[in-house]
């Protein structure tokens, strides 16, 4: 009873804290000065039609590098934490217990997975023109992978391949940033490639290249996480 009272008190306290916040919020009528600067320099500064992308990759590029590192750490900690130790025999025993997947799911997977992968690649290549980008495209690619795993639980992805894709794209991201410091004006400078015509696919300097690497990296990492979690789940069921 006391516990329930305490929980209720915490919830009411939080709600009371939010009420003045809502009352003092009046909405914005115009952009802040910083946002105005980014918008006015959209064409000649970063050259990306999607201003959020310009901020994420160019102006705040270092933050994104840190973000990618955090995602990498998550994937490697999960891989290290959930180490699997099982023999071939357990493996066959488990799969004999599972219900067979329906033909509908298997056929649909064959038809859909290439389309989903292509859609993910489309999202991260067009990150500087449309709402989208590396993280979103990578997440879409990982969903295709989850579908493959649902249709065929025995499906095994080569961990080496995932590792190589992940490390190579992360490495290229850092190298491109360093190239900016050597050739261009500073770390992650996007003008080391020509800016091109504003609003075209091949524009915005280095942004589409970096976003493609981020997309590949995020896709590989999320697929690796899903794969590790599902392998461990199988260990529980035995």
């Amino acid at each position: 009873m006391l516990k329930k009272g305490l929980i209720l008190a915490i919830l009411i306290g939080f709600s009371l804290m939010f009420i003045p916040l809502i009352q003092n919020f009046h909405g914005n009528d115009k952009l802040s000065d910083l946002a105005k600067y980014y918008t006015e320099n959209a064409e000649h500064g970063a050259g990306a039609a999607n201003i959020v992308t310009a901020i994420v990759i160019t102006y705040r590029g270092l933050d994104t590098l840190g973000e990618v590192v955090i995602l990498f750490l998550t994937a490697s900690v999960i891989g290290f934490f959930l180490k699997i130790s099982k023999s071939e025999k357990d493996e066959t025993l488990r799969f004999s217990k599972l219900r067979k997947t329906s033909e509908l799911l298997e056929t649909a997977t064959k038809a859909l997975v290439p389309t989903i992968f292509m859609f993910g690649v489309y999202i991260f290549i067009n990150g500087h023109l449309t709402p989208g980008g590396g993280f979103q495209g990578g997440a879409v690619i990982a969903t295709g992978f989850v579908l493959m795993l649902l249709a065929n639980p025995q499906f095994k992805v080569n961990h080496k391949v995932i590792e190589y894709i992940e490390s190579l794209s992360g490495f290229s991201f850092a190298i491109l940033g360093a190239l900016g410091a050597i050739i261009g004006l500073g770390f992650l400078d996007n003008k080391i490639l020509p800016l091109g015509t504003f609003g075209e696919l091949l524009s915005a300097g280095i942004i589409p290249v970096i976003y493609s690497f981020i997309g590949l990296k995020v896709g590989a990492e999320l697929s690796g996480i899903v794969e590790t979690l599902s392998e461990n789940q199988s260990e529980i069921e035995i």
Partner: peptide, 29 residues
């Protein structure tokens, strides 16, 4: 247009949230 700066910050925050959730799920497992 709407202010793009907080939107870029939220993109970062979503990715970090995903990492935290994945780690919590691994711990639960």
């Amino acid at each position: 247009i709407a202010d793009p700066v907080p939107q870029a910050l939220v993109l970062t925050s979503i990715v970090i949230g995903l990492g935290v959730t994945a780690l919590m799920l691994a711990y639960v497992l």
